[in-house]
Design a protein around this nucleic acid. Sequence first.
DNA 1: TAATTGATTAAAAAAATTTTTAACGTATTG
DNA 2: CAATACGTTAAAAATTTTTTTAATCAATTA
Lengths: 187, 187
Amino acid sequence: MSDFSREEAEASIQNAKDLVIESLAETMDLYGVTRSAGTLYGTMYFEGDMTLDEMRTQLGMSKPSMSTGVKKLQDLNVAKKTFRRGQRKHTYIAERDFFKFFSDFFSDQWKREANLNLEAIDKAQMQLNETIEDSSLPEETWKEAEKVHRILEESKPYYYWLQNLAAMLRSGELIDAVPYSRKQRKS
Amino acid sequence: MSDFSREEAEASIQNAKDLVIESLAETMDLYGVTRSAGTLYGTMYFEGDMTLDEMRTQLGMSKPSMSTGVKKLQDLNVAKKTFRRGQRKHTYIAERDFFKFFSDFFSDQWKREANLNLEAIDKAQMQLNETIEDSSLPEETWKEAEKVHRILEESKPYYYWLQNLAAMLRSGELIDAVPYSRKQRKS
DNA sequence: TAATTGATTAAAAAAATTTTTAACGTATTG
DNA sequence: CAATACGTTAAAAATTTTTTTAATCAATTA
């Protein structure tokens, strides 16, 4: 039976895509990507490789927007430059492997976070030691220095843990330690 | 020996704190918190409970800023309202347990992300099925519908995996599966 | 219960980010 | 090697977000 005209069917397909594009864009917000770059990713997600002009046509935005958008997606490793034979324009394709994205993104982020904070803690503790070792200061003062030193010391295990987690994620260990299928976990 | 005056020592302690406050604020950017709310958290991190007016004095900002900042931190579960005996003003204290923060934050975020996308995928696939089942359409059209359907189907394992990861994180399983100490992992 | 203090909401101002238009540089092709 | 097409950078415009001031609401106390 023929419920749909061809045009209706194609509009319906586009509508289905849009539902997911919306949802992907909303998600990518959480990964520090603007809504428009997220929508661009979602659009590319359903296409083969695309030129900047094709993107612009689909999204109705300017070409520099596409250029910077693609750049952001490349930084995130979710878009790659491709070669299309006999095509003068540059082409780009979306990375569809979310596991790879997850691993790259969070292992980088967590490693950076841990290193940044541990470095600050080290510097702060060295500076605090100068005060702590100075016996001529009033009790109140070096007690405060010791308190701050202790608070910082107590936070270190978290950052070590985060470094270890990042390493496990990068190596693939973590991915495989969690089941891939639905409701496989005990209830 | 007396290298420091008391004032110098106190300035030095504050300087040490500031190093870490800066670093915490930069980190919290990654968790969707504005720089100023991040700085507020860092400030509270080294203090006991604080009133809005104490915060404002320390940060040199307006009281409504403190009010909305604390609210954001409460939403993130990194600040809690406390009771200070005989204190009319409200007081708040920073949560220092980063493990708890990590678990709460990411298990929520990942669960939301998985559910949101799986829901969109479901709706999209149902809509695509209408086109796929319509035998009167040109081959090109239902082939496209099938392709999109397949792409979506192939992404599901990732979201199931993410749901499982979120559950493992919430239950504490994941935290304990990763070592807490430095360089414990094989090199 | 009136007066006062403190917190939040609303509206305005300020600041930061995103997007576009326009200019520029680079590379490809005839 | 000239001409043209493409991509990126720069500057301007537009939008969004953040912050503040002002007003309102709520609660405590005298």
